[in-house]
Amino acid sequence: MQIFHPRADTIARVVFVSLGAVPTLLLFLGYMIMRSPYITGQDLVREQPVPFSHEHHVGGLGIDCRYCHTSVEQARFAGIPPTGTCMTCHSQIWTNAGMLAPVRASLADDRPLRWRRVHNLPDYVYFDHAIHVAKGVGCSTCHGRVDQMPLMRQAVPLTMGWCLDCHRDPAPNLRPREEVFDMAWAPPKNLDEQGKRLMGEYHIRTQHLTDCSTCHR
């Protein structure tokens, strides 16, 4: 008397294979989700109190990054411009523009605009703008071509792996200090040679750049 169906052996094989394949698939899916824009925030545009266009102000008008982000060369934080900086121009031009009503209200009420952070690193990550600028890392390396962004977005993943890739081999991302704020800067043909030269000039040593305490303090 036959106890098991002829297909039972096939079913058993499928079950055993699934026991190994399903956990592997779940781990792979989890890995992909953790690297997706849903988690990293890459390419997402966040709603702001005013639709500020870097494309217009930087790309069109040629305003230097440091005009608004005044502390980027001296401090850990690049700084967010106060309303007074905006009104330096907008007290004279586009004075009645509807989209600038929050700016005028901010000045009248002496209350800062509540901008939403686009590049929002976790609290346990230490990042210092000043040291990166001093070592020749351009704004566009981390922030992308903001002069071509009608609305600000996060151009790169900013994951731990992405940062470590640069800390292990920073040479390809270095440029002369006078070019740090140039959005249109393009790497030269002798990038490898320039990178090695700048590593020496800027006294960059990679031995401890991947130490945990470098970014987690």
Rank of each mutant, 00 (worst) to 15 (best):
H5W: 14
Q48Y: 07
D211W: 12
G84D: 11
R117F: 01
C166T: 05
H57W: 09
E179I: 01
K135D: 09
A171W: 09
S213P: 00
T83W: 00
C163T: 03
V133R: 10
A108E: 04
R197Y: 03
R197T: 11
D182C: 03
A186W: 07
T85M: 07
L26V: 15
M199G: 00
I33F: 11
N190C: 07
A101E: 14
Q74H: 11
Y31I: 05
R104A: 00
Q74W: 11
W185C: 04
R168T: 06
M99A: 07
P157L: 09
I131N: 12
R35L: 15
D147C: 03
L121M: 14
Q48S: 08
L198T: 09
V103P: 02
D110C: 06
T210S: 07
F28W: 13
H54S: 07
I11N: 08
R66N: 13
E47V: 10
L107Y: 05
S140M: 09
A12F: 05
P112Y: 05
P122H: 11
H203G: 08
P172K: 15
P37V: 10
R35F: 13
N96W: 01
A134L: 11
N96L: 04
R46D: 02
T206F: 02
A184Y: 10
D128I: 13
S36D: 12
C139W: 04
V180H: 08
T40D: 10
T10P: 03
P37E: 05
L44N: 05
G79N: 12
G79Y: 05
M32C: 12
V58C: 09
Y67C: 03
A186S: 14
M199N: 01
P37W: 12
R168E: 10
S36K: 06
I131P: 07
C215M: 12
H56Y: 14
T206W: 01
A8I: 06
P23V: 07
G62R: 06
G195D: 10
M160G: 02
P112V: 06
E47C: 01
H69E: 02
N96F: 04
M199K: 02
G62C: 04
L44G: 00
R205C: 01
G30M: 04
R104C: 00
P51R: 15
